[in-house]
Amino acid sequence: MAPATRSTRAWIAALSLTAIAGCATVQPWERGTLARPVMTTEDPPHETAQKLRTYSAKEGGAAATGVGGGGCGCN
């Protein structure tokens, strides 16, 4: 396996730091703003799926977008 690049190691470190910092607690009654539709981290599933498949077919880079979805012989 190829050695991890500097940018990959930086991302892993950032991920770990965020996990450690995860002790901040926002109580359920303080989440009115977080519950608003504009605050979701996930776009509608069909829009997300179609856009990611388009990027995957037209770009050579990879994306960390979660698992699932089969390949296609996209031109």
Binding site: L15, A19, A24, E30, A64, T65, G66, V67
Partner: peptide, 26 residues
């Protein structure tokens, strides 16, 4: 034949009452 295996980890963290962050690695 073409075989592909994907491994994914992620974390979503509420930062405060108005912001959150999501980190992913694949």
């Amino acid at each position: 034949t073409r075989i592909k295996r994907d491994f994914f980890v992620g974390i979503t963290q509420v930062i405060d009452e108005r912001s959150l962050v999501q980190l992913s690695l694949e």
